[in-house]
Amino acid sequence: MKLIVGLGNPGRKYKKTRHNIGFRTIDALLDRHGWKLNNSKFHGDYAIEHFNGEKIVLLQPQTYMNLSGESIRPLMDYYDIETEDVIVIYDDLDLPTGKIRLRQKGGHGGHNGVRSTIEHLGTKEFKRIRLGVGRPVNATPVVDYVLGKFPKDEKEAVEQSVQDAADAIEAWIEGKPFVEVMNDFNQ
């Protein structure tokens, strides 16, 4: 069983913000396959589905970003999911908008959702997909920036990065080694 986690904040007001690009990737996978997040437990909304003979869980933690690990860990424990079968999708200020980067492990890089995930999993060794949102170019505080929406001129690049992330996840679920997926999708 594989666990695909998109990080974000719950509620309509955060729906299209930069910080919710992980949720948007989960939404893209749901839309592609006609799936629904029809379970609410473990402080999250999730779906259990089958794809290419693999049982998968798609999770959107409802804890708010900074407490994401409080949703991920209990779900992993309940379904007996190993860390090597987890992939976490989240926004990254250090990548330009529209770029994606896959990694097998790493630190939190200042991202509080990833920090919480590392704390609750007890390891930095889980797969991740970072989707670029760029950095503020003016004096906008980072918090306001990540909780802001993408400007119209970035929407196409954002949508392409979300679709690329969804493609990468599907390739991994289909059995392609993650190193090969990284080689295919890292830009």
Rank of each mutant, 00 (worst) to 15 (best):
L29A: 08
G122T: 07
R130V: 04
S71C: 10
F42S: 06
D80P: 00
L3A: 07
V86K: 03
D167K: 12
T63C: 00
E49S: 10
N112T: 02
R135D: 14
I48E: 15
I4W: 09
I72T: 11
S71P: 12
P61K: 00
V57H: 06
N183Y: 09
G98A: 06
L67F: 09
T117W: 00
I48M: 12
G134R: 07
L75R: 01
V162P: 00
N39P: 02
L131A: 11
D31H: 08
F178H: 08
N66E: 06
G11V: 10
S116R: 10
V5M: 11
V162Y: 05
L58C: 01
N38I: 02
N9F: 09
I48Q: 14
D144E: 15
L59P: 05
G109R: 03
N9Y: 07
I169K: 05
H43K: 15
Y79N: 01
N138K: 13
L93R: 10
N183G: 10
R12Q: 12
D164H: 12
G122W: 02
L29V: 04
F178A: 12
S71M: 00
A165R: 04
T17P: 07
I118D: 08
D77W: 03
D31I: 01
S68N: 09
G106S: 02
R130C: 09
I129W: 10
Y79S: 03
Q163D: 13
N66Q: 00
K155C: 11
Q60R: 10
E154Q: 15
S161G: 06
I118S: 12
D167N: 15
K2T: 04
P177M: 07
A47F: 04
V162M: 03
L147Q: 05
G110R: 11
L37T: 06
G44F: 07
D91G: 06
K36C: 04
R12M: 03
R12W: 01
K176H: 05
A28C: 14
K2L: 11
E174H: 00
F185S: 09
R32E: 14
V114T: 10
I173S: 09
E54C: 08
Y14K: 09
R103W: 02
D164R: 14
R103N: 13
I26G: 02
P96T: 03
K127R: 15
L30H: 06
H120V: 00
V146P: 04
P10A: 09
Y46I: 13
I21W: 11
R73L: 04
N183T: 12
R115F: 02
R101W: 03
Q60F: 02
G6F: 12
F150C: 12
G11D: 13
G44V: 10
T17V: 08
G148K: 10
K176N: 12
D92H: 03
H33C: 06
T97A: 13
E70Y: 08
G175W: 10
G148A: 14
